[in-house]
């Protein structure tokens, strides 16, 4: 434990500084107003500065007396696949319609697990598509077309 330097602390602090700072810069572009009539920029400026300051404190603390946290591994495959699946859903649900979008999203998601077998993936995806169609479209009357305009319907 040399210096008790903690990577997670520095990373977390860095994220807070970055986001807080971005909001501070952004809010300077809006009217700040006076204390009597605070403009739209005043409150985000205040809170943004506070977040950045807290982030800085966390970084400093992480360098001298950090919290020992086991950061562990990052499941890159799962991160990539789940991101892709969700983006796909948002991007195509209007165009492809409920059924194809759900099927592809579910199939993609099953691939996030390292131990997935192709047959299991297909079965799970098919089952989930049928189940969600029954629950959301048939049962709860969600107004999303089953087949979208991109498919020529």
């Amino acid at each position: 434990m040399e210096h008790r330097r903690s990577f997670p602390d520095v990373l977390a602090g860095g994220i807070f500084v970055l986001i807080g700072g971005a909001f501070v810069v952004g809010s300077l572009g809006y009217e700040l107003g006076t204390p009597l009539r605070m403009g739209p920029g005043a409150f985000p400026l205040l809170v943004g500065a506070l977040v950045a300051a807290l982030g800085l404190a966390i970084v400093v603390k992480g360098l001298v007396a950090g919290e020992m946290i086991d950061f562990g591994t990052i499941p890159w495959r799962a991160v990539a696949v789940i991101t892709l699946a969700l983006m796909f859903f948002g991007f195509t649900v209007r165009g492809l319609g409920f059924v194809p979008t759900s099927a592809v999203t579910a199939l993609l998601t099953t691939l996030a697990s390292k131990h997935v077998r192709p047959l299991t993936a297909v079965v799970v995806a098919a089952g989930l598509t049928v189940a969600s169609t029954l629950i959301f479209v048939v049962g709860l009357q969600l107004r999303i077309p089953l087949w979208g305009p991109w498919l020529g319907f």
């Binding site: 859903f89 948002g90 998601t109 697990s113 959301f136 107004r143």
Partner: peptide
Amino acid sequence: QVLFPMIILFASIGTYSLGFNAYDVYAIV
């Protein structure tokens, strides 16, 4: 392996049906 695809799929459908706004789904990511 069955559970987490279900959560992801239901999450995207649920969030999208809030206002039929794809941005809500991107925000989950």
